[in-house]
């Protein structure tokens, strides 16, 4: 597995081809995270583009010492999506949100069938225990802190960390 350090350097230099590569690597993930929060395809499309354009303009503020590039843009995406959900216009539009977790979306995602890792993902999702579903949902999709997740799940804070580790391990076993 090759690190993306060279891409990041070019990205910070406003190299559009590097940005396109980063988009190819992470665009869909960001779209997925945003969609999971806003639950609306058109809004998700719009938000995801906003997120990447924002990242492009703020590229100078990113430093790999502060965290992974994926983590950085994931954070921008979650904040943008949460802001959107809290906005007045969004609340008026979306009265009855379905409470689907990412697992439910993945299960019903027909688009996924065209992907090479679709089988692994679907297998993972179908076998995933409830506790894993919840901890991944909260930590990666919703951006909860360890403490917030422990309160929501009524689980000791130390358990969150190890449980999450085990859940991600299962994921790695099936998709990598």
């Amino acid at each position: 597995m090759v690190d993306i350090q060279h891409l990041i350097i070019r990205f910070k230099d406003k190299d559009q081809s590097a940005f396109e590569e980063l988009y190819t690597m992470y665009g869909e993930s960001i779209h997925g995270v945003v969609f999971n929060i806003v639950k609306d395809s058109a809004i998700a499309d719009e938000l995801m583009q906003d997120v990447f354009i924002k990242a492009w303009h703020k590229s100078g503020t990113y430093s790999s010492k502060k965290g992974r590039f994926f983590t950085w843009i994931l954070n921008i995406a979650r904040n943008a999506a949460i802001d959107k959900v809290r906005s007045k216009s969004y609340k008026q539009e979306k009265q009855n949100l379905d409470a689907d977790f990412f697992v439910d979306i993945i299960k019903s995602n027909e688009n996924l069938n065209s992907r090479t890792d679709a089988i692994g993902i679907k297998k993972f999702v179908s076998r995933l225990g409830e506790k894993c579903k919840e901890v991944i949902e909260l930590l990666y999709f919703k951006g909860f802190t360890q403490k917030e997740a422990s309160q929501t799940m009524q689980t000791p804070i130390g358990t969150i960390k190890t449980r999450n580790r085990n859940c991600i391990k299962q994921l790695r076993d099936m998709v990598l």
């Binding site: 597995m1 690190d3 396109e20 988009y23 190819t24 690597m25 992470y26 665009g27 869909e28 993930s29 960001i30 779209h31 997925g32 995270v33 969609f35 999971n36 395809s41 998700a44 499309d45 995801m48 583009q49 992974r68 994926f70 983590t71 994931l74 990412f102 979306i105 993945i106 995602n109 688009n111 996924l112 992907r115 890792d117 679709a118 993902i121 993972f124 991944i136 990666y140 999709f141 991600i168 994921l171 790695r172 998709v175 990598l176």
Partner: peptide, 21 residues
């Protein structure tokens, strides 16, 4: 890198459709 790759794949599979760059 492996944790990241796995999470990237998982989150990507939630996306209902791809958006061309």
């Amino acid at each position: 890198l492996e944790i990241e790759a796995a999470v990237v794949k998982l989150t990507a599979s939630v996306s209902p459709h791809a958006i061309d760059f």
